[in-house]
Amino acid sequence: MDGIMSQTTQAKATTGVSWTSRFKTWEAFLLLITAAVFVLNTLASPYFLDPWNLSDATFNFTEKAVVALPLALLIICREIDLSVASIIALCSVVMGLLAEAGFSIPLLVLGSLIAGTLCGLLNGVLVTRFDIPSIVVTIGTMSLFRGITYIILGDTALKSYPSGFEYFGQGYVYWVFSFEFVSFLVLAAVFYFLLHRTNFGRRTYAIGNNPTAAFYSGINVARHRLILFCLVGLFCGLASVMLTSRLGSTRPTIALGWELSIITMVVLGGVNILGGSGTISGVVIAVFLMGMVTFGLGLLNVPGIVMSIIIGLMLIAVIAMPILLRRFKQRRS
């Protein structure tokens, strides 16, 4: 009511109302599209509806999806991290070096998780201490982290991973259910609980909607964001364990360019890039949607770059659709 809407609220108003009322529309909308894609895929390719094939397909997106979960929280909290792919690479290098030094599997995993968390911590400290927009900080650390992997590895590869390590990226928990995929489902549940059922999640929304008011309500905004940056780093470490295990080797180019597809997953899942709203269920559905579209098109041997056109169009269309629908309704009423 007060004055004109600011740029932010204007954009916010256009992308959605709030997460509660949105649940009825956004997730349903995404689910509908996902179902449609599923049916189309089944019709288009005889190979689609095969448990092993579907299971194989999950490997293409699971590691990204694992990072998308905490990143969704970070974006809801009005921050962003473009350095995620570089963190994954750096963690992989740390693991490779530890493996070379003969450390055991648990220590490799621990090393990756710690390295990831430290990278996240660096991002978080730079953002919160110096009050710099996270997009700028993480453009810098994105080059920095990836650059370190180049310094360490140069043109060599690390591949002396101990036997048994391949389980994280290649093993199956039960029948067609891979360790990666089951972990993702469990983590999705954990994050659902964290965001929607805990004080931490409530504070995340509060900060994302109005950081000043949240601060005035006694929430330690800087610390909360710092924790989220660390959390993103930690899960990059975890994703790195899975990816490295799946590839069985580490090179500096590992996970190159992943940051944009991860962010696309989050945004497609209905998380407002300007913060304040979004749900884990939306992100999970978007993950499946993207996975299914790319796998379906892959079965038809559509070149990857054509898929990226479709993903790009989908991203814009899915964001624009509610806005256009609302305009249309307003015009009619």
């Binding site: 954009a11 890039i273 990226s308 169009l313 991203l315 814009i316 256009l324």
Partner: peptide, 18 residues
């Protein structure tokens, strides 16, 4: 449409290159 610029250009970036 009031879509945030970062989302728009993230999308068109893939589209144009495609």
């Amino acid at each position: 449409l009031g879509i945030p610029a970062i989302v728009v250009t993230l999308g068109t970036m893939s589209i144009y290159r495609g």
